[in-house]
Amino acid sequence: MTVNTITFLLCALARQAISQPNDISPARVLSQQTRLSENSDLYVTCSTFGLKKPSWIFVYLCKDGVGIRKMVQKADQIDSTFIVSGVGPADSGNYSCCYSSEEYAPSEVAARGHNIIQILVIANFLPAHITLARPSAVSEGDAVEFRCTVPDTLQTLCGCQLIPSYLRKNETILQVQAFHVKRMETTFTIERAVARDSGPYTCVVLPSACIREHENTLNGSNAVLLEVKASVLLRVIVSCGVITLLLMGLLWIANRHGWMINHFSSYNPGTTSQQADTDMWEEEQEQTEGDYLEAEDGESLRMEEEEEYQNEIEADEFFNGCDTEGEAVYSVPDDSPSRASWYAASFKKKKHMINRPPGFTVG
Rank of each mutant, 00 (worst) to 15 (best):
R35E: 05
Q16D: 01
I130P: 00
A123M: 00
L162Q: 13
T48E: 01
S346R: 10
S100C: 02
V138A: 10
R183P: 05
F188A: 09
F8I: 02
F264N: 06
E296L: 10
H114W: 07
H352W: 02
T153Y: 06
A128N: 12
Y166E: 07
G67I: 06
A340C: 09
P54M: 09
D23N: 15
A75S: 02
V121S: 07
L10S: 15
N124F: 07
Y330F: 11
T34F: 04
C98M: 00
E312W: 15
S31L: 02
G50S: 11
I68N: 12
A223V: 15
M353W: 01
N39P: 14
P357M: 14
T187Y: 10
T288D: 03
V87H: 12
E108A: 14
V228I: 06
V224M: 09
F179P: 00
S19K: 15
S100E: 04
G67C: 00
Q32N: 14
E103N: 12
N355Q: 03
M260Q: 14
Q20W: 07
T149S: 05
L157R: 06
L233E: 11
V3K: 15
F347C: 04
N262G: 02
E185A: 15
E299Y: 05
A195T: 04
S25V: 13
Q310C: 08
T172L: 12
V236C: 10
T278R: 15
S239M: 04
T131H: 10
E299L: 05
N39K: 02
T5W: 06
L247K: 07
L225D: 07
I119E: 05
W281Y: 08
Y99L: 02
D277A: 09
S336G: 10
L234A: 00
A193C: 01
F179G: 03
A110E: 12
F360I: 10
D291W: 15
P21G: 08
N39Y: 09
H214W: 12
C203T: 05
N94L: 07
R196S: 09
I6P: 04
D91Q: 09
Y343N: 06
D335L: 03
E191Q: 07
F319C: 09
P269V: 12
L162I: 11
A128C: 12
L10I: 05
V236I: 08
A14E: 00
E191C: 00
D334A: 13
Q287I: 03
E296D: 05
